[in-house]
Design a protein around this nucleic acid. Structure first.
Lengths: 234, 234
DNA sequence: ATAGCTCTGGAACATCGTTCCAGTCCATTG
DNA sequence: CAATGGACTGGAACGATGTTCCAGAGCTAT
């Protein structure tokens, strides 16, 4: 029942759940999702597969723990000072940067039944809503919308980085644009229209503008009665 | 080089890429993502694995094609009449319903390097932006925000349905709430605060309210100069 | 010293995606 | 009509993976 850390540990380099997860994150970052194997992990930790299973239930739990770790680190590094809107932006951008540094984590979001990582995102964005004057009964819906948006950006950008990482960024964007270029213009007129903006657009900036869009929606909902005919204050 | 459909086909029940993908969708819906195997697929089609590889490159392409199919069907069924905002809502809800009916497709969004399914979503939401009076230079950003939101909702709700489907809905929601109940209240105060709203909330309605939030942001951006101190018209 | 745990390492197993190939079917050619 | 060749099929076989199993090592408490 008890796992590690009950006792002082037997060797200096003793295995622990934390060391296993850390090694998994390192492999995922270096080799991509397909590079993480119980054999490669065992070799890196100089042990066997059975030893790993003592600290971790299985691969699903290992992936969930790895994603949870990088997300917790990203959120933990956010400054909690500044204006409410700036705080929300900082949280969102920290998550964006984390998912860009660890693309496998974005794909993992859609596969974690425990939803611990999802809860962290919800908590991080939800914690800023009081300061943004969002009514308590709306906070669940607004926080979910923000979390969904962030998770979606993470997931779709994870699709970019399939296979081993390290691909050149501009080269990749060109490849993506070429793939969409081949789509039938009659069936995908909008995609073709925006295609010329793809190569030189800034993912991060565009992501931030999406947050601003939702923020604008929040503000509008907060003061829905402002109309040109009847200004406040009177 | 040429695949099927070059010739009349040799048997009445001849294999084809379409039949393979259709069978894959049926298995995915019935057994979940782990139920789709080249062996189960071959058995269902009364053939061998090699025959399937003649029509499909591999499992990745098969999953991408399956997701692309259900998304295309969902978007194709949307009525294109009505007010602009209602059209966008209809597109979004059609996608939401599709991802709820085929949870594996939501998880697939984050793993498809071709991004065909992602292009379909972008096209569907982008096609409504002209009518919503979104400036052409903003349409790429706004469409991406909407696509990210929809994909995120799809992905996070896909995490619900891990394993074989058919689970009772209320039973599942209770289980999810219980899992979050165990989180440390000091670390997850917001999650605990909204926990009581989880059991009897409507996923679909909450998703739609997120679309409305983004719509409100679009409207506000369309008329940004309305302020209490300086009403328009003068 | 002995017993009984926590924890380790690696062999072994079932299953998966994929490759390979002998063979079947059919339209075309001579 | 016989022969040829490409389209397509079915299943055996291969390598890799997640997981299980177990014999034993190390350490603590009796």
């Amino acid at each position: 029942m008890a796992t590690a850390a009950d006792r002082p540990s037997r060797r200096a380099d003793a295995l622990s759940r934390e060391r296993v997860v850390t090694a998994a994150v390192e492999i995922l970052d270096a080799e991509g999702e397909s590079g993480l194997t119980f054999r490669t992990l065992a070799k890196r930790l100089s042990t066997g597969a059975g030893a790993i299973y003592w600290h971790v239930q299985g691969k699903d739990e290992l992936l969930a723990a790895a994603a949870n770790t990088v997300i917790a680190v990203a959120i933990g590094g956010v400054r909690t000072r500044g204006k409410p809107a700036a705080r929300l932006r900082a949280v969102a951008l920290a998550l964006f940067d984390a998912f860009e540094a660890h693309p496998w984590a974005g794909a993992q979001l859609a596969r974690d039944p425990s939803r611990l990582a999802g809860a962290r995102i919800l908590e991080a964005v939800g914690g800023t809503l009081d300061a943004l004057a969002v009514a308590p009964e709306s906070q669940f819906a607004v926080a979910s919308a923000l979390a969904d948006y962030i998770a979606g950006a993470a997931g779709l950008s994870a699709a970019h980085a399939a296979g081993p990482p390290g691909l050149d960024r501009t080269a990749f964007l060109e490849a993506a644009a070429q793939r969409w270029e081949r789509l039938d213009p009659a069936e995908f007129p909008f995609v073709h229209r925006i295609l010329r903006q793809v190569p030189d657009h800034d993912d991060r900036e565009q992501f931030a503008s999406g947050i601003d869009l939702i923020l604008a929606g929040i503000e509008k909902r907060n003061s829905p009665r402002i109309s040109p005919a009847r200004p406040a204050r009177a």
